[in-house]
């Protein structure tokens, strides 16, 4: 039989202890997008300078 769903089980009693949520902001201004675009471009340029022999395969995603 499924456990009874109560306010406590849903954590609602804990909710008042959560701090006030930060109000929603305006969407980012054009300059924020431009700065992030520049960051991405700089990262690309920076990586392009590193020597990378053609035979190197991507590192395995899941192993150290």
């Amino acid at each position: 039989m499924p456990a009874k769903v109560t306010r406590r089980r849903l954590g609602l009693l804990a909710a008042p202890l959560m701090a006030k949520p930060v109000p929603a902001q305006e969407p980012p201004a054009a300059d924020d997008l431009e700065i992030q675009r520049q960051n991405q471009r700089r990262a690309r340029e920076s990586m392009a300078k590193a020597a990378l022999p053609r035979h190197i395969e991507p590192a395995t995603v899941f192993k150290a």
Partner: peptide
């Protein structure tokens, strides 16, 4: 994503 608190971060996630 626009509900996040940091505008620069919102822009970064969109990018």
């Amino acid at each position: 994503v626009d509900k996040l608190a940091d505008k620069r971060q919102i822009a970064g996630i969109k990018m």
